[in-house]
Amino acid sequence: MEILEGYRPRDGGTVEVLGADPQRGSSAWRERIGVMLQSSSLYPNLTVRESLRVFAGYYANPRDADEVVELVQLTEKRDARVRTLSGGQKRRLDLGLALVGDPEVIFLDEPTTGFDPSARRTAWDTVRNLRALGKTILLTTHYLDEAEQLADRVAVLRDGVIVREGSPSELTGGDVETEIRYRRGGDEVVERTTDPTRRLHELTAEALARGEELDQLEVRRPTLEDVYLELTAE
C-alpha cells in the first residue's frame, strides 16, 4: 500500500498508479489520489469543517467541505474541535480528508478498525457510494466480511505475495465444499460436500421418513474467511 501511495521505494519490478511511478509522483498526480492512513493524523485544535477546508485548500478542484461533512456523516459534529471527537468520528474525518480533493483513486488502509458494528455499516455505505461514483478504491482490511461486502476484486496477501485473487464469489465459489451442520441425538454432525443439493435432499428425506427433526440445521457456503484461513494456513 505504501509503495502505491509513494511513501516507500519498491524492492523491484514496476509500479504504476494512474500511469505514473508513485515514487516520482508529481503534485498533479497527487491531485488525483486520496489517502487514508492506518492511524489518524489530525490537528486536534481545528474543528471538523476547518480541517476539511485546510486540506481542500491543497487541491485545485476540491469538493465542498460541507458536502464531505455530510458524506462521512459528521454533520452534527462539524463545528466541534477534533480533539473532542470519538475514535470512530476521527476515523470518519480521516476518511473525509482523503475524499476532499475529489480523487480518482482512493487508498483506505484498514478504514474501519475499531468501529462498532453500526459505524462499520455506515462506513460501508460511504464506500459503496464512492464506488457508485466511479472511483477506484483500494482497501486493506483484516475483516473478511468487509472485503466480501465491498470488493469487486479481492487479493489475499501472504508474506507480501498475492496467493489468490479474484471476485469474492470466485474465491468462495468453484469446487469449494459446502458445510451442512445439524444435531442428532444431542451430538453435532458436520458434513462437507461438493454436492449440497442432493445431500440435503437425502438428509431431509431420511429424517422425514423417521419422523425426526434435524435440530439446528444449518447450510453454510464457505465465507471468504474460510478461504483466507485455508490459504494462509498452508
Partner: peptide, 14 residues
C-alpha cells in the same frame, strides 16, 4: 510522530 507530516506529503502541497 502523529503522522500529520506523512499525511500532508500525500497531498499536492509541494
Amino acid at each position: 510522530e502523529s503522522g500529520v507530516l506523512k499525511r500532508i506529503r500525500a497531498t499536492p502541497l509541494p
